[in-house]
Structures are given as structure tokens and as C-alpha cells.
């Protein structure tokens, strides 16, 4: 789970790295974005001028690496004006994050 905004810290990227590593060893892994973390999923991020790589483009490699799903907390998306139309492709909207968490054997927050 990533509940922190992109680019501010390295916490989220470390979580992404962990998810990719689990996928590399064929562990079933999904990522849930909640709170300000949903801002990872906004389309058309252009971080060239702050000398960083686009977290959205990094995330687009997740299905290739074997990450099963990218979930977004619907309430947080509404708060930040995010809809499936202005988010990156392949995001699954999740009305109840707490219910989703019960479907997983293990859940961990980034940071």
C-alpha cells in the first residue's frame, strides 16, 4: 500500500521496488494506492524539470513484471479529482480499501 504522494520522498519507490521483486519470484502481489498516494496514478506527469523519472511510467511496467493489479481508493481519488479518464491505464477503482485488504494474506504500508 502506498499512501504517500509521489516525488516528495523515496518511500514509494522503495515500495514499488519491493512489489517488483516479489513479482520476480512469482509471488502474487498487488499495489493499493490510498490517501495522497493516489496521485501516483495521474496521467501526463512530466518530472523532467525536477530531474526525476515519471512514477507513472515506472508503474506502467508493473503488469509486465507480473504485478497482478493496481488498485486505487475511490474516496481518495474523488478528493484529488481523479477519475479513470485522467489516470494511467489499467487502474482498478476500489470502493472499500478495508474490504480489499481482507482478501490478502499479507498487507504492508510503504514507509
Amino acid at each position: 500500500m502506498i499512501d504517500q504522494s509521489p516525488y516528495g520522498t523515496w518511500v514509494g519507490r522503495e515500495a514499488l521496488d519491493m512489489a517488483f521483486s516479489l513479482a520476480a519470484f512469482d509471488q502474487a502481489v498487488s499495489i493499493l494506492f490510498t490517501d495522497t498516494g493516489v496521485n501516483w496514478l495521474r496521467a501526463f506527469q512530466q518530472p523532467n524539470d525536477i530531474a526525476q523519472k515519471s512514477v507513472a511510467k515506472n508503474l506502467s511496467a508493473a503488469p509486465i513484471f507480473g504485478v497482478e493489479a493496481l488498485y486505487a481508493d475511490a474516496a481518495a481519488c474523488r478528493r484529488y479529482g481523479l477519475t479513470l479518464d485522467n489516470m494511467i491505464e489499467g487502474v482498478v477503482m476500489c470502493e472499500s480499501s478495508s474490504e480489499l485488504l481482507h482478501q490478502f494474506a499479507h498487507a504492508a504500508f510503504a514507509g
Binding site: 516525488y7 496521485n39 501526463f44 512530466q46 518530472p47 525536477i50 485522467n86
Partner: peptide
């Protein structure tokens, strides 16, 4: 502006 642009 660069910070806004970075975040879409």
C-alpha cells in the same frame, strides 16, 4: 510550475 508539471 516544474513541481506542478511533474505531478500532472
Amino acid at each position: 510550475a516544474p513541481d506542478a508539471l511533474a505531478r500532472g
